[in-house]
Each structure stands twice: as C-alpha cells, then as structure tokens.
C-alpha cells in the first residue's frame, strides 16, 4: 500500500521527467527547407496543423541558430521524428547538412534529402510538401537520408538528390565533391534508376516510328572492374504500352523486341555514363570497386572504358486478343 501511495505521489510530481512531452505541446515537423544566403542559413519548417500546415522560418549564422530562431516563433516544441523531407538549395554546403542531421538524435533516419531552388514551395498552406514528397517516393524509398549519408560519409559513391519543382518531384540532381552538377531527367532518369537497381522505372524503346514501353518487374545490375568496367544489366519486364507492328503472340517477334529493348538500353546507358564521367560524378560507386580490387586508385572511374551488356526479358505480355 505504501508503495502504491508513493507511486501515486510520484505520478503527480515527476511526470515532467526525461523525454516526457505531451502530444498537444508538440509541433510535428513535416519538412524543412534549408537555404544559405548572405552568409546566413535560412530555414523554413513545415508543421502539421489539422487539415493545413503552418510555416515557421528562422535564420542564423549556423544551422543550429537558424533552427532555434524558428522554434522561438512557435508555442510548441518541434518534433522531428516524423520528418518526411529536408529540402536543400544549391547554395548550401551539403556536407554540413548531412553531418548536422547525422548527429542529430531528434530526427528519424528515413526522411529524404531533396534538392530544390524554389524558395516559395510553402506558399500554399493547404498543401503539405513533406507528405507529397513522401507519397511520390513511396515508403520503400531509395532516397532515404540514412543510406545517402552512409554513402557520403564512407565516400562509397557520389550523391543523387531528387529535384522538387512545381509541387512535384522532377528529375535527379547529381553531386560531385560536394558540388551540385548536372540534372538528369525523363529517359535518362529511367536509365539511372535501372543502373541503381530501382524497380520503379520504365523502359521506352522505339521500333521504327512506333514505340513500346516496358514496366520493369525486377532489375539486377552487376558491375565488374577489369581492364574495362563491365556493367551487366538483367531485367525482367512486362509490356505496358505497345504500338509496334510485331505480333507479340509469336516467340520470334518477342525475341526481336527483347533484343531491340536491350540494345536501346545499352545505348542509353552508355550515353548516361559518358555524361556522368564528364561531370566526374561516381554515382555507381565504381571508385570503391576499384579500391576493393586493386587497393589503390591509379586510375579513376572516368579513366576506364565501359562495356555495357543488357539482357531484357519480357515476361508479361498482357491480355492478347485475336
């Protein structure tokens, strides 16, 4: 009885102890925009508020100060465990951002690092940017902060950040030596996704004046370092859209289409890799593979010749009517 009484007393006097925070006193952060201008960090925080969102902004000489000045404007304590996205402009030093969030124990580790140069993304109070990005990328994300930060810190490969523009994700931006490089969009974005083994890609192939689009079910990309860099791509796919004259009920025609798709992918991948090499962007982590094999970097990834071999198989043809 004494113990129970003691527990009850403690309940009244000690409920404000470590880590205790009442839900109604929290401002749940959905996304953060970070910019660097006039030697100052500028942050905007998007907070969930019933049907709408609230925006709090702050600035400071460093990221911590900028966050503190934003928090001072709100009655609530900001809660970063449900963070969907951190949007950074081209002006910020990406290394600072990655290390800041990597060390921060108050954030979750599965938000996405996004690039944007649109400072007015939070103009619509009824539109939740963080949630829109999360829905666009899906929950089985390939662009999660933790894997990005791990690759960045270990220098395994260069970073790629999705670009947020006009209320949607549009293209991918590459980074090299902490500097933003070229944008990769549309068909190139699809090829990059295939090279990064992302199933959420489409393969568009021309057959004369017509075309067919393959939906990728599984992709397996193997990279081997030898005299050349050999990239072997195995794809299992299904036909999504088809306007060509070939009869896909016939095996010979189907084989022809598979060859056509493979060849087209090889050419596209070659073009993309040439572009990335010109930018000195090692997205595929080839430098790491060279180091693992030779334990030295006499030649860098862009000094090698590339040999690309694609093998596209069409497994699903859809409903065939005669």
């Amino acid at each position: 009885m004494k113990k129970l009484f003691l527990i009850l007393i403690c309940l009244f006097f000690l409920t404000g102890c470590y880590n205790y925070k009442e839900l109604d006193e929290l401002g749940v952060v959905s996304s953060i925009l970070i910019d660097f201008k006039d030697d100052k960090y500028k942050v905007k925080l998007e907070i969930y508020d019933e049907e709408e969102v609230q925006i709090f902004d702050g600035e400071g000489e460093n990221i911590t100060e900028a966050f503190k000045s934003a928090e001072a404007k709100s009655d609530n304590k900001f809660f970063y465990r449900h963070l969907n996205a951190v949007l950074v402009t081209d002006n910020v030093n990406i290394e600072h951002i990655i290390y800041y969030f990597f060390r921060n124990p108050e954030t979750n580790d599965n938000f996405s690092l996004i690039n944007t140069n649109d400072e007015e993304i939070y103009n619509d109070e009824e539109f939740n940017v963080g949630l829109a990005i999360r829905n666009d990328l899906g929950y089985g994300q390939d662009f999660s902060f933790f894997s990005d930060a791990k690759n960045f810190i270990n220098k395994t490969s260069d970073l790629t950040l999705p670009i947020y523009k006009d209320n949607k994700l549009d293209g991918i931006k590459t980074l090299s030596n902490q500097n933003f490089k070229s944008e990769i969009k549309d068909a190139e974005e699809n090829v990059l996704k295939i090279l990064l083994e992302n199933n959420n890609a489409l393969l568009n192939t021309k057959c004369g004046n017509d075309y067919f689009i393959l939906e990728i079910n599984s992709v397996d990309t193997k990279i081997k370092v030898d005299n050349k860099i050999k990239i072997k791509i195995n794809i299992k796919s299904g036909i999504q859209e088809f306007t060509c004259s070939e009869d896909i009920t016939k095996i010979d025609d189907l084989k022809k289409l598979e060859k056509l798709a493979s060849k087209s992918l090889e050419e596209d991948a070659k073009k993309l890799i040439d572009k990335l090499n010109n930018d000195s962007t090692d997205i595929l982590g080839i430098n790491t593979l060279i180091m693992n094999k030779y334990h030295k970097l006499d030649k860098y990834f862009n000094d090698y010749d590339y040999e690309i071999e694609a093998d596209v198989s069409i497994y699903k043809k859809g409903l065939l009517l005669k």
């Binding site: 880590n19 205790y20 925070k21 009442e22 839900l23 929290l26 749940v28 959905s30 969930y48 809660f79 465990r81 449900h82 969907n84 979750n108 949630l131």
Partner: peptide
C-alpha cells in the same frame, strides 16, 4: 507522451 515516433504520422 514519450514515444510519439512509434505511431504513423
């Protein structure tokens, strides 16, 4: 009160 991160947003 303590583990708000464990439930969906």
């Amino acid at each position: 009160t303590i583990n708000q991160e464990t439930i969906p947003t």
